[in-house]
């Protein structure tokens, strides 16, 4: 029996995990969300920006990992448009640009923001750290036109934005190692203020940068999206998701405990 539990076919675990997601999705619950300090810091920073200042949003996540950063991007965009903070979108990832385009259009439509005045999507350029460095001296040297092909000189919003000097905050929504790139090349060299919204995978490794102030705020994965949604009073995919998430985490914690009990029991039996 114990052996059976220990070597349970992984497909059984798959089915259990699937059910733990499907059932709460069909029968949603709502639990109170506690806002953590790094999220609060980011919210406070953006909330204190003066109308007319500019936030640069780096959409560094692909279709494969949009579940977490997209609700974050949506919540922050809403907040910015409400506060009349201008948003410049860029991406270092080749497959992120269409996602960014669709999301920005959607939120802008909802909030009545105007392309070219309230927000701009510059798009993608290959080159990683060189793109970051290049924009530090002159954005137009990297992006001579926006995503749709319009020259930057014809976009009213970009008239007074030449490099990082005019960017109040860079928010990197990342699923990979781009945050480190932004810190190493934009913060260290150009003093650009940086915050990040990252997928769960890389949350832990952001903390050293948070403590030194190299990051002024952090949205930790799905939880971060839900917390930000709570702060701007507009519950969305993050809030719904983190509630569903609760049950899967419970399941996994339960499985790990059962697995360990079985493991200790077999070990004791082996010893005796």
């Amino acid at each position: 029996m114990l052996e059976k539990i220990m070597n349970m076919d992984r497909r059984i675990v798959f089915i259990l995990a699937g059910l733990a997601v499907v059932i709460p999705t069909l029968l949603p619950v709502s639990l109170p969300i506690t806002v953590s300090e790094p999220t609060q810091k980011l919210y406070d920073y953006i909330d204190a920006l003066e109308p007319g200042s500019t936030l640069m949003m780096a959409f560094d996540y692909g279709p494969s990992s949009l579940a977490e950063p997209e609700p974050m991007a949506e919540a922050v965009l809403k907040h910015c448009f409400d506060k009349k903070v201008k948003v410049v979108g860029v991406t270092l990832l080749i497959d992120a640009v269409t996602l960014a385009d669709q999301l920005m259009q959607k939120v802008a439509e909802e909030k009545g923001a105007v392309y070219g005045e309230d927000y701009v999507l510059l798009g993608y350029r290959p080159g990683g750290f060189q793109v970051i460095l290049g924009m530090g001296s002159e954005i137009a040297s990297i992006f001579d036109n926006d995503y749709a092909g319009k020259p930057l000189s014809e976009i009213p919003m970009m008239e007074n934005i030449t490099n990082y000097e005019q960017i109040s905050l860079l928010l990197d929504l990342a699923s990979g190692s781009t945050v480190e790139l932004w810190i190493t090349y934009a913060n260290a060299k150009y003093d650009l203020t940086i915050a990040a919204g990252v997928t769960g995978v890389i949350v832990s490794q952001m903390y050293p940068y948070l403590q030194t102030g190299q990051l002024v705020g952090l949205l930790p994965g799905f939880l971060g999206a839900a917390q930000y949604e709570k702060l701007i009073n507009s519950s969305g995919k993050g809030t719904a998701g983190i509630n569903t998430e609760s049950f899967v985490h419970l399941l996994i914690v339960g499985l790990v405990i059962i697995g360990n009990i079985a493991y200790f029991m077999t070990r004791q039996r082996g010893e005796s």
């Binding site: 920006l49 003066e50 200042s53 005019q166 109040s168």
Partner: peptide, 11 residues
């Protein structure tokens, strides 16, 4: 005229 600052009250 560069880099808009946080208003005083914010911190």
């Amino acid at each position: 005229g560069l880099k808009p600052r946080l208003p005083m009250g914010s911190y």
